[in-house]
């Protein structure tokens, strides 16, 4: 029994190590590729060890781009991605906190209707309403703007439900105290509810930041001006160039690394909030 137990544990370690290798390998190879010169790929000199052009390649990708292949530097794209991710995460949290507060702490006509309208957005991902949504954004002249990139994505049923659940667990005595003390609803919201939901807000922020950063289809539709490219959608233009003509794989892979670094850092640094946010939002 003990012997077979030890064997099983050994197998478990082996399986996990294998799993980690499979997870890490694609990223490791991308990193290796990003440290070689473009010519090295064709001559087959890119193996499993890093080259010597780490700083040079990343400087080129970030600040100069490659004018011959017609792709812009990715530094500004990183900034756009950051603005988009922050605006989406904070926007979703703000409007969902307010709506959850409204449906929990007030009774008013059409309350049920409002709740259902918010619920329906769960069933309408961008992918199923691509053309008409594009039309609306074009009519509002929001193409090529930060508003166009973020506004259509910040309605959130999931976040509203989550905050509703959190509010439902907050004791009614607190509300009674506020009513007796003559504190208005906004004062109560700001001084009681917000501090009590701090951890939930932080956990949700981690998930929503990643969600916003990784948007692809929407930026692809609403940006034609390179000044508004985000890095995740911009990388596809670079990759197309890599297939077409000169070997620019080193720059494509440097861009890929830069595109995944911020959200991975967020997960790595906020591991516990991340797990909490994931399990809270997805049920």
């Amino acid at each position: 029994m003990a012997g077979s137990g030890r064997l099983l544990s050994l197998l478990a370690h082996l399986a996990l190590i294998l799993g980690v290798v499979v997870m890490v390998l694609p990223v490791y190879l991308a990193f290796i590729a990003s440290t070689h010169s473009g010519g090295d790929f064709l001559s087959g000199r890119v193996g499993l060890l890093p080259g010597s052009l780490f700083l040079e390649n990343y400087r080129t990708a970030l600040f100069t781009g490659s004018s011959t292949q017609g792709f812009p530097p990715v530094g500004p794209m990183l900034l756009n991605s950051f603005i988009m991710a922050m605006a989406i995460a904070l926007g979703k949290i703000a409007i969902s906190l307010l709506s959850a507060f409204a449906v929990c702490y007030f009774r008013f006509p059409l309350r049920q209707t409002a709740f259902w309208l918010i619920f329906i957005t769960l069933m309408l991902p961008v992918e199923v309403r691509i053309l008409p949504t594009f039309q609306v954004v074009a009519d509002l002249s929001l193409l090529n703007s930060y508003g166009g990139l973020t506004l259509p994505l910040i309605a959130s049923a999931t976040a509203t439900f989550l905050f509703r659940q959190v509010f439902m667990t907050i004791p009614d005595e607190l509300t009674e105290a506020a009513l007796i003390d003559g504190a208005g609803p906004l004062r109560f919201f700001w001084h009681v509810l917000l501090p009590l939901s701090r951890t939930n807000i932080a956990a949700l922020f981690v998930i929503l930041f990643i969600y916003g950063w990784n948007q692809y289809l929407w930026p692809l539709l609403v940006t034609t001006d390179t000044r508004y490219y985000t890095i995740v959608m911009g990388i596809q233009r670079l990759a197309a160039a890599a297939v077409e003509a000169d070997p620019v794989w080193h720059l494509v892979m440097a861009t890929a690394i830069l595109a995944m670094l911020p959200p991975i850092l967020v997960i790595a640094l906020m591991q516990n909030l991340f797990v909490r946010g994931l399990t809270e939002t997805e049920k």
Binding site: G19, V20, V252, A268
Partner: peptide, 22 residues
Amino acid sequence: YRVLLVWPYAVAPAVAGILWWF
């Protein structure tokens, strides 16, 4: 192991595609 296994969640689908494509 958990730390080393969960981070691909943060990789955008498009970027994951590019990695395997490469």
